[in-house]
Nucleic acid binder design. Structure first.
Length: 420
RNA sequence: GUGUCCAUAGUUCAGUUGGUUAGAACGCCAGGUUGUGGCCCUGGAGGUCGUGGGUUCAAAUCCCACUGGACACCCCA
């Protein structure tokens, strides 16, 4: 075969598309329930938006972005995540000047050049929401309960929500020192990866999957126990609201999101129905991002969720069965006269909204019947010179096998009743 | 980027210690009625055995490289 889709990318074929429609429709409807409005941004942005917004030291910016120069030499990047792009659009279009709080959601492809595996593709799709302009813990709670609500509405069973606070620019640096001092005691014993992170990103050592790292850091100090007063209050208010809303969650002091812009609340939703990449969604508060990309301080919260991963859990739950589309009527032609009549009649039926199909391959009547059956058409009209002569057509119900004759003038009415 | 496993018809797979025309099932096409589907029967089409090298008298089968896939690490949605 000459051409193949590039590594880590997939076609979504007609036979699967109804799953995507189903999922997208549900997401949209819940987003609207929470009064979030859709936003769409270009698939690429200036590279600097992401490197500045997400953080130079993150893995995403460091080694996963699809970056290329355009013909004028500007460095562009296929979006690896949506938050920075949304915030750019927010600033560029002065959305914050039109109202103090902006609530938007998106459904969009993302691109990250990683080694593909279960639940990880190079082009994948995310949905997510951003609540821009509020530092109120109610906003954090709304975002968390919104994402929960979506999974609940899909009747997903095995998911759980964990929350944490990663502090702010005031308390986190102090905590970092405390943590570093603690880790220094046994730095040599840590995994190679973790030793590298000691200087740049000591927080990340806490959520290492390495067994020895986990054992060694069992008693390490956690950010949530070293928050400044403001962060501590914020964290406890978020919890109180979640309790009131009956959103089930647990506190996990080791959650550290991989993007630099998070402050205070960080959370994730994982599923035991997924493989090693078990995060369905992740998010949190990012009070510093807007400043990073050149706006004035704008406290915000948001989350992002993987559609392929959601689909994987739904496949496990056997949610999809025979939801594919099929025509109501297949018009089978017995001869050349019938062929003309068939396309004319199909058009008439289509004009009143009845999905109809005909044969395009000059097949025998038998083959046309087979085709109608394969497509799960509910009815077949047989048309040939005889019927056209008599102006009366045979309509076969494909489920029961029963045939009846209907005069040409009654056909439209007949199907409008039958297919209602 | 690293590691492990894998790569044969449209699909899921079989292919014996390397040996001659590479098989099955399902799917597809046609026929079994002269204008009628599903079940059944009969026949048919369809394969550069991922690609490129190498070993050998002989390679789908052994070796190497590359590409792609699955999974895991890493990281994350």
């Amino acid at each position: 075969m000459k051409f193949k889709s590039v590594k880590g990318t997939k076609d979504i074929l007609p036979e699967d598309i109804f799953k995507w429609h189903f999922v997208e429709q549900k997401i949209r409807s819940i987003m609207h329930t929470f009064n979030y409005r859709e936003i769409r941004t270009p698939v690429f942005e200036e590279t600097a938006l992401f490197s500045r917004g997400i953080g130079e030291l993150t893995d995403i910016v460091g080694k996963e972005m699809y970056t290329f120069p355009d013909r004028s030499g500007t460095s562009l990047t296929l979006k690896p995540e949506m938050t920075a792009a949304v915030m750019r659009a927010y600033l560029q279009n002065n959305l914050g000047e039109q109202q103090p709080l902006t609530k938007v959601y998106y459904i969009s492809p993302m691109f990250r050049q990683e080694r593909p595996q279960a639940g990880r593709l190079r082009q994948f799709h995310q949905f997510g929401a951003e609540s821009i302009g509020s530092s109120n813990p109610t906003s954090d709670a709304e975002i968390i309960s919104l994402s929960n609500q979506i999974y609940k509405s899909f009747e997903i069973r095995n998911f759980k929500t964990s929350i944490n606070s990663v502090g702010c620019e005031k308390c986190r640096p102090q905590y970092k020192e405390i943590l570093k001092n603690h880790l220094m005691g046994f730095a040599q014993k840590l995994s190679e990866e973790s030793q590298k992170r000691l200087e740049q990103n000591p927080l990340r050592i806490l959520d290492s999957k390495n067994e020895t790292d986990r054992e060694l850091t069992k008693n390490a100090p956690l950010v949530k126990d070293h928050l400044c007063e403001e962060c501590a209050n914020h964290f406890s208010e978020v919890q109180q609201i979640l309790n009131k809303l009956n959103v089930p969650y647990s506190i996990d002091g080791r959650i550290v999101r991989g993007l630099d812009y998070y402050t205070k609340t960080a959370y994730e939703i994982v599923s035991s129905d997924l493989g090693s990449q078990d995060a369905l969604a992740g998010g949190g508060r990012y009070d510093l991002l807007v400043e990073q990309i050149g706006g004035k301080i704008t406290p915000s919260v948001g989350f992002a969720a993987g559609i392929e991963r959601l689909l994987m859990t739904l496949e496990k739950g056997n949610v999809f069965s025979g939801n594919d589309i099929s025509p109501d009527v297949f018009i089978a032609a017995a001869d050349d006269l019938g062929k003309i009549w068939a396309i004319e009649t199909a058009m008439k039926l289509r004009n009143v909204g009845i999905p109809s199909e005909i044969d395009f391959l000059n097949r025998s009547l038998k083959a046309q019947m087979r085709e109608a059956d394969r497509q799960k058409a509910r009815f077949v009209i047989v048309a040939g010179a005889t019927e056209i002569e008599k102006q009366s057509f045979t309509i076969k119900n494909m489920q029961t096998g029963v045939q009846m004759d209907v005069p040409s003038s009654e056909i439209l009415n007949h199907f409008q009743n039958e297919t209602r």
